[in-house]
Amino acid sequence: MKQPPAQNRWERLSQRPLFALALVFAVAYAVPIVEPDASRAVVHACLVVEWVVWGAFALDYVVRLLLAERRWEFVRSHWLDLCAVLLPLIQPLRLLRLVSTLLLVGQRARMASQIRLTTYVGGAVVGLMMFGSLAVLSVERNSPDGNIKTLGDAVWWSFTTMTTVGYGDHAPTTGLGRMLAVGLMLSGIALLGVVTANIAAWFIARFEMDDVEERRQTEAIRLLTEEVRALRAEVAALSGNGVGDKQVR
Results as ranks from 00 to 15, higher is better:
Leu65Phe: 15
Phe74Lys: 03
Met209Ile: 10
Arg97Ala: 13
Val155Pro: 07
Ser39Met: 09
Gln247Lys: 08
Ala237Ile: 03
Pro36Tyr: 04
Glu35Gly: 12
Arg222Phe: 06
Thr119Leu: 12
Arg215Ala: 06
Tyr29His: 12
Ser14Tyr: 08
Met129Tyr: 03
Ile204Leu: 13
Val125Cys: 02
Leu176Asp: 11
Leu128Phe: 15
Leu66Arg: 15
Phe57Asn: 03
Leu89Val: 14
Ile204Tyr: 13
Val34Thr: 11
Leu180Val: 15
Arg9Asn: 09
Pro36Ala: 02
Gln15Pro: 04
Asp245Glu: 02
Trp72Asn: 07
Val52Ile: 11
Phe203Gln: 12
Glu226Lys: 05
Asp60Leu: 01
Trp79Ala: 07
Ala45His: 11
Ala135Met: 10
Thr163Gly: 06
Arg108Lys: 10
Ala68His: 09
Gly132Asn: 04
Leu117Arg: 10
Val248Tyr: 10
Ser14Met: 14
Arg71His: 07
Leu59Cys: 15
Val155Glu: 09
Arg141Glu: 13
Phe131Glu: 02
Ala6Asp: 11
Val155Leu: 14
Gly106Met: 03
Leu223Phe: 02
Ala56Tyr: 03
Arg229Pro: 00
Val31Arg: 06
Arg12Glu: 12
Val48Gln: 13
Phe25Ser: 00
Asp81Phe: 04
Thr174Asn: 05
Leu186Gln: 01
Glu234Asn: 10
His170Asp: 08
Ala45Tyr: 11
Glu234Gly: 10
Leu93Tyr: 15
Gly240Glu: 09
Gly242Leu: 04
Gly146Lys: 05
Ser138Lys: 13
Met130Glu: 10
Val228Leu: 13
Ala41Phe: 10
Asp81Pro: 04
Val105His: 00
Leu65Glu: 02
Arg215Val: 01
Met209Arg: 14
Leu87Lys: 02
Pro88Glu: 04
Tyr167Ile: 13
Thr101Tyr: 01
Arg249Pro: 04
Val125His: 03
Thr101Ala: 07
Leu180Asp: 07
Arg12Gly: 03
Leu93Ile: 10
Ile204Ser: 14
Phe159Arg: 03
Val126Trp: 08
Leu82Val: 09
Thr119Cys: 02
Ala56Trp: 07
Val121Ala: 07
Leu82Cys: 03
Leu67Asp: 05
Tyr120Gln: 15
Cys83Glu: 08
Phe25Asp: 01
Glu214Asp: 15
Gly123Arg: 00
Leu117Cys: 04
Phe131Lys: 02
Thr160Ile: 08
Glu11Leu: 13
Thr119Glu: 12
Phe74Cys: 00
Gly152Val: 11
Pro172Val: 01
Arg97Pro: 08
Arg16Phe: 14
Val99Gln: 05
Asn147Tyr: 01
Pro4Arg: 06
Leu21Arg: 04
Asp145Tyr: 06
Ala200His: 11
Gln247Gly: 06
Ala20Asn: 13
Leu104Thr: 02
Ala109Ser: 09
Gly146Asn: 03
Leu224Glu: 15
Val136Trp: 02
Trp156Ile: 14
Thr119Ile: 09
Leu82Phe: 13
Leu224Trp: 14
Arg94Asn: 10
Phe131Val: 04
Gly106Gln: 05
Val194Lys: 00
His44Pro: 07
Pro32Leu: 06
Arg76Glu: 09
Ala205Arg: 14
Arg141Ser: 12
Leu66Asn: 10
Asp245Gln: 05
Ile148Gln: 00
Val99His: 06
Gly242Cys: 01
Leu47Cys: 12
Arg12Phe: 09
Ala190Ser: 00
Met1Gln: 09
Pro92Val: 02
Arg206Ala: 13
Ala135Arg: 06
Pro172Gln: 03
Glu11Met: 12
Glu214Trp: 11
Gln107Lys: 13
Leu191Ser: 00
